[in-house]
Write a protein that binds this DNA or RNA. Structure first.
Lengths: 243, 243
DNA sequence: GAGTGGTCTAGACCACTCC
DNA sequence: GAGTGGTCTAGACCACTCG
């Protein structure tokens, strides 16, 4: 048969390994179960530890595995569906919203946010830090940027001041909001809040709140990409239950 | 002074390097410009190539860099905003939708999709592969799973058959749809279609189309996470132009 | 064929968790 | 202190693009 495509697909080792491990996860392991350690696994499959880690990293990105320094690698439960559909026409902090205010500072925002808010040079805004959790596990961290003159820097503690900022927002009518989702990596602060290492992959949701023809606030929410699936309960009423 | 927190933050080298490079990108490089090669960069910063690559990988995930084997590393343009808000109550393939049909096969879907469609064991469905591009660059690849009896396997070529499947869908009323977004990594097929290497990070958008109390179709769309920002032009009319 | 990024290795040490 | 995953190194070879 001569040369029928002789191995034009030299599949990388880590890629093949990922497939093998993935199947092993389906058939031989239960959710929460702990895998052999990386050195043993590497030896078992006859690869260097770095190569094994490349495969594990992929599986972690896909939400199949969870790795914890000092503990081990475990089989991850299915991703949590997190609804990020906007409560119709409501400001952040409205009754029923899933976020908890952590604290509040006043600084000049990063350039990307300043652009969205149409600010000049070093203008400062209120920054409300909020957290979203599910069953005790941190899902997301948020920074809410609000260019308000309202709550003057009374040096009361962060959380209370944050709530004051939100209340001030609620006084204006909310004309609309729009949203975008992109991939990012967790900064030092967010990583701590999400109980991950810096650089961990996150889904960054940017929300613009519009009022009176202006962008009245911008929320940057970072969701753990390994454990979260963002859902939009959009249309048409009927909620078929997801199995 | 004694021991004021003596270095409790032994920041990883690659993390610090990423910050340094990020600032260099802002100040010293223009979009599209090509960086020095990895070996030189590593030498310049006094780290091993693997460490440098860890920093570059982070920057690539954040959409700041673009790497091409055999070519080099370039400064990436800002991510493209891709609207994935549903055209109100319209099936895939309706006039004005951004996708192009590539081909169509008939196979049994992966387990996750079979569950959404409520199929039994090895039941087959029509699978329409579609592509979405912008300015010639591939943005996303999609697999649309349609459990129809309609277009019998007339062995006409893929694209035409795919359109027939879509037309068949349009005969039923669309009651609603819902959507979710999560992080994934590109499979071999998708990677080729997206002009990326296998394993590249993608944003996976899963859409369920509901009709007559059933899930009539499921679309799994994979967007290049490095170049795409998914947007939802949701509420309230006014479209402030993004700068 | 020269130059690039992608894969892989074998080994070392560090930071963390838990006993 | 033992065991885990996380970081880092120095070097090799491969796959790809382009002149």
């Amino acid at each position: 048969m001569g040369t029928t495509q002789l191995e034009t697909v030299p599949e990388p080792k880590y890629w093949h390994l990922k497939t093998v491990l993935s199947e092993a996860l389906d058939s031989e392991f239960a959710v929460g179960q702990i895998l052999p350690n990386e050195r043993d696994l590497a030896a078992r499959y006859g690869v260097a530890r770095a190569t094994l880690r490349q495969a594990l990293e992929q599986l972690e990105f896909e939400g199949r595995l969870q790795r914890r320094r000092g503990v081990g690698t475990t089989v991850a439960p299915p991703r949590v569906g997190v609804d990020i559909a906007p409560v119709q026409g409501s400001w952040p902090g409205a009754p029923g919203d899933a976020w908890q205010v952590e604290d509040c500072t006043e600084t000049s925002p990063p350039a990307a946010v300043a652009r969205l808010l149409d600010l000049v040079d070093g203008e400062t805004v209120h920054v409300v830090r909020r957290a979203r959790t599910s069953h005790g596990q941190p899902l997301a961290a948020e920074l809410l940027y609000v260019p308000l003159d309202g709550p003057r820097s009374g040096a009361d503690d962060g959380a209370a001041r944050g709530q004051a900022v939100l209340r001030a927002l609620h006084r204006d009518p909310l004309d609309g909001q729009d949203r975008s989702v992109e991939l990012g990596s967790a900064g030092a602060e967010d990583a701590r809040q999400l109980d991950r290492l810096p650089g961990a992959p996150v889904l960054v949701v940017t929300t613009r709140y519009l009022s009176g023809g202006r962008v009245a606030a911008v929320a940057v929410s970072t969701y753990r990409a390994d454990t979260c699936r963002l859902t939009f309960g959009e249309t048409g009423g009927m909620e078929l239950l997801a199995s």
